[in-house]
Computed example of a mutant assay.
Amino acid sequence: MKVAIISGSVYGTAEEVARHAQKLLEEAGLQALFSPRLSLEQLLAAEPQALLAVTSTTGMGELPDDLQPLYAALRDSLPAALRGLPGGVIGLGDASYGDTYCGGGEQMRELFTELGVREVSPMLRLDASESVTPETDAEPWLAQFAAALRS
């Protein structure tokens, strides 16, 4: 199974989590495609069989600037090729921000719902105020995600 990893990062942490996810998914026997600046054309050309979004949150609960173009392209076109695919979201944020905590992840989760992507694992929320190693903290969730994709 080919998993496309979409990421958005402000300071690079979400990108590191996405790179680590790629490595772990490949170790689990899946093909994983990750490019930090993935375009809609590149995403669709890869013909993914599953989607994983890894994103931080910025401002008042928004997506990082580097993810905005792909997010807008997906939202505007709602490509039929992605409908029904399994997927999941890892959201990074800081719980001290209250209502906007992991807002970027929530936006991707809502977009996946609009696209018809089936959530195979509930969104993982990684709290920057509690974790110094989010990539390691994501490992149990990623193992469950990989298992769900293989079954």
Rank of each mutant, 00 (worst) to 15 (best):
Lys2Tyr: 01
Ile6Leu: 15
Gly8Leu: 08
Val10Arg: 14
Ala14Trp: 11
Ala18Val: 07
Ala18Asp: 07
Arg19Cys: 04
Lys23Cys: 03
Leu24Asn: 06
Leu25Trp: 09
Leu25Gln: 04
Leu25Arg: 12
Glu27Trp: 02
Leu33Glu: 06
Phe34Leu: 10
Arg37Gly: 05
Leu38Pro: 02
Ser39Asp: 07
Ala46Gln: 12
Ala46Tyr: 01
Glu47Lys: 15
Glu47Phe: 04
Ala50Arg: 11
Leu51Thr: 09
Val54Thr: 03
Thr57Met: 06
Leu63Glu: 06
Leu67Ser: 15
Leu70Asp: 03
Ser77Gly: 00
Leu78His: 03
Ala80Val: 13
Arg83Leu: 07
Arg83His: 14
Gly87Arg: 03
Gly93Arg: 01
Ala95Leu: 12
Ser96His: 10
Tyr97Glu: 08
Cys102Thr: 15
Cys102Phe: 00
Gly103Lys: 06
Gly104Asn: 06
Gly104Ser: 09
Gly105Ser: 04
Gly105Glu: 05
Glu110Ser: 13
Leu111Ala: 12
Leu111Gln: 11
Thr113Ala: 15
Thr113Asp: 13
Glu114Trp: 12
Leu115Ile: 10
Val117Ser: 09
Val117Asp: 09
Arg118Asn: 12
Arg118Tyr: 06
Val120Asn: 05
Ser121Val: 15
Met123Cys: 05
Arg125Glu: 14
Leu126His: 05
Val132Cys: 04
Thr133Leu: 13
